[in-house]
Nucleic acid binder design. Sequence first.
RNA 1: GGCCCUAUCGUCUAGUGGUUAGGACGACAGGUUUUCAUCCUGUAAACCGGAGUUCGAUUCUCCGUGGGGCUACCA
Length: 499
Amino acid sequence: MIRTRMAPSPTGFLHIGTARTALFNYLFARKHGGRFVLRIEDTDKDRSRREFEADIIEGLHWLGIHWDEGPDVGGPHGPYRQSERITIYKKYLMQLYEQDLVYSCYCTQEELERERELQMLAKQPPRYSGICRGLSDAKRKTLEGQGRTSVLRFKTPQRVVSIADLIRGDITFDTATLDDMIIAKNIETPLFNFAVVIDDFLMNITHVIRGEDHISNTPKQLLLGESLGFSAPLFGHLPLILNTDRTKLSKRQNKVSLLEYKNEGYLSEAIVNFLVLLGWSAENDRELFSLDELENIFSLDRVHKAGAVFNLAKLDWFNAHYIRATPIDILTARCIPFLVDAHHITHNDDGSYTITATQRTIEINDLRQIVSLEQQRMKKLSGCASALGYLFVDQPHYDASLLAWKGMTLDDVVAQLLFLEQHLSEISEDQFTSSIIEQRVKEAIALADKKNGEVLWPFRVALTGQTASPSPFDIAPTLGKTLTLRRIAYARERARTLQ
RNA sequence: GGCCCUAUCGUCUAGUGGUUAGGACGACAGGUUUUCAUCCUGUAAACCGGAGUUCGAUUCUCCGUGGGGCUACCA
């Protein structure tokens, strides 16, 4: 059975690149009826934090990615946190020790650094000299007597290692260019390259799908696994996600924390769709997919090799698309937190809402109507709060000259607003709907031989105070007859005073 | 510096030993609309360079060049 894994280290918030790697692993496992495992690589005690683990889990769940085994759900190959597997690593470290494949290195970090600097200066590749490899017992005793601590190094075999990368084909390394890597700080503290090999083997991982930045780790891990007598998994190295300048995606240039995107009003559907297209494409020209659909059509052999620039404009397009495609009741539920955050509304105990500025009580249905006003305009969910401000104030303020459409005088404006008031007031409260208002007003416009713009532009500005907004026919019923008429009367006053 | 990866419109990409090199985002122009958005139509926009193989290379090979990754007692 195919088993893939995501092995993030909880040293920061869930990175968008990590999320994409998780997505590819998840999709590949699902596509082939396999299992997907989450493993937390928290061997770095200083930098790992539980809150980051929580952020990673939350972010992945938000995207709709779920795992069959992991620290939160358990499973037959646990524990799934490396910090809880120390005794396991210890055992294999001992095995390597008995095989005489590891040795203690007493060099201090300062010594190693100096060595590296000297090599760089001499235009030599920086490599550990291997000076501690052949230390005699006596010499070791002396060094320990001096109070020196040691780390454990692996006696890297010198030979040619080849990996048959699922995405890139054969990659060959000559490990003679490698030095003896440190695989553990001490018997209790294994390091990444060592722990990974053991866990992937013990957890029966069949396919290691990870970022291209791990290619150079692969020969080391292969060698280690070989020495331990492990069978090797298959590897597939994904292209990196890039900044606009084509360097590795960084928080200097982009938002990289997944949940930041959520907080800004991106939909998980949009993120998933956007992310899957960064380095993968479907057989036809199709670009719109749900996660469910991807589980059926994803394939590793259509993954590209070259890095992909993170194109925010396209993400925005996907997001707007999925906002438009979301049923209004769901969209409303997703928008409410943004309206609350913007202090437009507060939530009441009985399930109703109060408009902060006016203390008017509204129901969920009213909110649906409000949100639907912006549904086809929003790029992000946060847009409903910023674009709809005029609905959440007593009276929007604006420059009276805004009311004039295409060279109209303010006299004209007053006349048109009066005309509107007259026809709107003839519509009863319960008839005050979008379609009826539109029908009546347009009839009146035609009858009076007016142009749409000369009536509708002042109408819209009177209601919103903005040059761009939804149709006044849709805003008016949302505001209600009373408020609509009040705003038109206010506009008339403004126009008059400015003459 | 060493090792490794990589190369089609601005971006994400499709594709082929012979194609008008296709799509999407973005840009631009037009239509629709009271405005914005949506929607519709259209336009501009690419095979990194040089050799080789071949009747023919964007496609295959090699060499450059560009870009990137790694080069930690991080993962």
